[in-house]
Amino acid sequence: MSDYSTEDYGPRIEALKRSHATFERNTDYALSNVQSKLEDVESSVDQLDARERRHFESLEADLQEAKETAEARSDELEESISSTDAGMERLGRRVTALERHLRQAEGAVVVDLDADRGGKLRGLGLAVEEGLAAEAELLTPHQRNLIHYSISHHQQARQALTGHRATVRQAAAVLASTAAGDPRRKKAEEDFTTAAKAAQETQGRLGNLAKKAKNAEEQRATDDARRARSAAVIEAGQRAHTQLRVRLRSRLSDALSGADLLPVWFSTALGPMAPSRDAEEWLETALDVLAYRVTYQVTDPVLALGSTPSEGSAPRRAARFNELARDLRAWG
């Protein structure tokens, strides 16, 4: 029996051994091939890392160089700005000195921007001020909107109360005309409870709303009457404002384009000419100053706005003075 088994399985065992040897050889070859490819990949990664490091180091060096160059140029720019500021200051002093010599020279003419033959410009300026004063006594659009809101809120509350009471009456009629168990009674009970509560709350607010609405209506009526009385004055002020600006703009344009000297007060407050930037704003400020001077008869040769007015005796003029003083800070 033992001999039979050996003779039966021997060839199979030999075949398995050969197959196993072949498998080991193939596996070794595959592993060797994979190992070789892995080494190639690792080598490629190392080479790529080295290139990336060199590239990064190069970028870092370029960045440092650019930073140093920017800092150097920034220092140069600051020095240039400082030098320019100093040069402008020296130039300003020279221009002032030259202008002083010109003013003292024989035949030098200074433009009289305050000239007002017959007081026509002052009359226009006073008309403008009168119109602005009348307009200042009127309610602003925001205030009138609040008044409209108070009146409208009261009207809406009254309408809501009427609706709640109608719902209560309708629900009460259903409850009075239906027997217990009627499907309509449940909704009627809910409507009655909700509407009755809402009516009570609205009724509680209505008194205060009515008082506010009455005050609002009185304010609106007063403002409407004041508007009717002031309409002509306000309209005249608006027309005077347009006429005054046109005349002053023409006068200032002639002065700026002419050869005569500008007054000291003008050059001190606004400079000798319009700036290259924001020229329109500069011109509007200059016109505001001219209008202020002709309206309030300011003739100070040095101070553009003259002396500071009293807020107690001339509140509108004082407010205008402060506003113009702030505007002039950008140009002087």
Rank of each mutant, 00 (worst) to 15 (best):
S177L: 01
T202K: 07
A134G: 01
D8P: 06
F321S: 02
R144H: 03
V294T: 13
T22E: 15
H20Q: 13
E323R: 04
Y292M: 02
F56T: 11
A134C: 03
A274P: 00
R73E: 14
L91P: 04
A173C: 03
T222I: 09
L262Q: 01
A231W: 06
G92C: 02
L305R: 05
G119P: 01
E280F: 00
D300T: 08
E106M: 02
K212A: 10
Q203V: 04
A105D: 05
S43R: 14
E189N: 03
L126A: 04
L206I: 06
A198I: 03
G125F: 10
T140Q: 10
Y4V: 12
E39H: 10
H153F: 12
S43W: 00
K37S: 11
A171Q: 03
A195C: 12
A330K: 01
P301Y: 05
Q156A: 15
E60T: 14
S307Q: 12
D327S: 11
A61P: 02
R249L: 09
L31Q: 10
A160H: 14
R93V: 06
Q143Y: 09
L59G: 02
E281A: 01
D46I: 13
R326Y: 02
S19T: 08
S313T: 15
S58Q: 12
V34T: 12
M88L: 15
M88W: 11
A269P: 07
A136M: 11
Y29E: 12
T242C: 03
S250I: 08
S5L: 15
S44H: 07
E130C: 07
L324E: 06
T84S: 10
E7L: 15
G92F: 05
L261D: 03
L102V: 06
D3Q: 12
L248F: 09
T84V: 09
R18P: 01
S177K: 02
A319W: 04
M88R: 11
N33R: 11
K212G: 05
T268C: 08
W282V: 00
A330M: 01
A157E: 06
L31R: 10
K214W: 00
L261E: 04
N322Y: 05
L16S: 02
S19Y: 06
P309I: 05
A134L: 01
V34W: 10
I13F: 10
Q155T: 14
A179T: 15
A255R: 03
E129I: 05
E190L: 15
R100A: 13
V95E: 14
T194A: 15
V264W: 06
W282H: 02
D75L: 13
V174C: 00
A240N: 04
R165P: 00
T162N: 10
Y29A: 11
A179Y: 14
G125M: 09
R90V: 08
G306R: 02
V246T: 13
E311T: 14
E106H: 09
P183Q: 04
Q159S: 15
L113P: 10
E201G: 07
A115H: 09
S152D: 13
D40N: 12
R93S: 07
S36R: 14
T6W: 15
